[in-house]
């Protein structure tokens, strides 16, 4: 099976700092892959490279045979979204003063079939488009248990709901690949369990391929089929969760040298602790 998303060894430097170095990745259709690493390892930078916020110095991103990002010709983020890559943000970026429904509807705009003039003249096509967007958005909100809050202003939602709304909004772009940047950050244990089920549900229902950044090791180990670990912009390990848990380099990256039998449990704790500080520091 050929890869849906292909990242040819990609590097990016900010001045003298090598943020990402020779990062490569292949995602098959339907896979759920975790991307982990200590704070400042370059995880979010990789997401920004995949979605066209940054242009790589070398390397390329290809989605379903379409070249998305490349040193010479990078598509703009909205073009990449249209090509089928959607993301959430580590520091929540909702359309804070708009309603929950509008947040999701805006993300369906890129598939809109009505024209600008049509909207002003209120043509039949424009009316149909509006009702299609509304029902599509409500469908998604229903899945995420937010249908009852459709008319509320996004900024007043509880934190966990805001995170879920971000995922719903990303799904509204009708993506092939979904990039989740710390979806569980700030959630309580019950919300995390619900989120786990939700990620698996939408993945099956929409046939999605998911790349997940997460500091909650319990969650990552539970749902990811494969894990890529990076540190200082360099991939230090790849493999199944069970392999990653005992990988000496990974333990060293999280806890420092001198690995011992307690390393595995320690890695989980360290990761959970960092989740809060990481999102706070980068926001």
């Amino acid at each position: 099976m050929s890869a849906l998303l292909e990242v040819a060894p990609m590097s990016l430097s900010f001045g003298g700092l090598k943020a990402v170095c020779d990062f490569s990745l292949e995602l098959a259709k339907g896979e759920l892959v975790g991307l982990i690493g200590p704070n400042g390892a370059g995880k979010t930078t990789i997401f920004n490279l995949l979605t066209g916020v940054y242009t790589p110095d070398v390397g390329s991103v290809t989605l379903a045979g379409k070249l998305l990002n490349h040193p010479e010709r990078g598509l703009r983020p909205f073009e990449i979204a249209a090509a089928g890559m959607a993301r959430t943000f580590q520091n929540i970026r909702l359309f804070a003063d708009l309603s929950v429904l509008d947040n999701v509807r805006i993300a369906t705009h890129l598939r809109a079939r009505s024209t600008f003039w049509g909207a002003l003249l209120k043509t039949t096509a424009a009316r149909k488009e509006e009702s299609r967007q509304r029902s599509h958005a409500m469908e998604l909100l229903d899945i995420f248990g937010l249908a009852g809050r459709a008319d509320e202003v996004a900024r007043f939602l509880p934190y966990g709901d805001q995170r879920r709304l971000e995922i719903a909004r990303a799904l509204a772009t009708d993506p092939k690949v979904l990039l989740l940047d710390e979806p569980a950050a700030g959630m309580n244990p019950q919300e995390k369990i619900a989120l786990k089920g939700l990620i698996q549900l939408v993945r099956e229902r929409f046939g999605l391929t998911v790349l997940l950044i997460e500091h909650d090791m319990g969650l990552v180990m539970d749902i990811c089929e494969r894990i890529v670990v990076i540190d200082h912009g360099v991939v230090i390990a790849r493999g199944k969760p069970s392999e990653i848990q005992v990988d000496a380099k990974v333990i060293e990256a999280y806890l420092g040298a001198a690995p011992d039998a307690a390393g595995e449990a320690g890695a989980g704790e360290a990761g959970a602790g960092e989740a809060a500080t990481d999102s706070g520091a980068k926001a």
Binding site: T51, V53, R76, P77, F78, A81, A82, A86, R87, F89, R93, L94, F95, A96, D97, L98, I106, A107, H109, L110, R169, A170, A172, T173
Partner: peptide
């Protein structure tokens, strides 16, 4: 509301 998010949502 949020230009970065708008761009990312297409």
């Amino acid at each position: 509301e949020n230009e970065i998010a708008a761009e990312a949502m297409g």
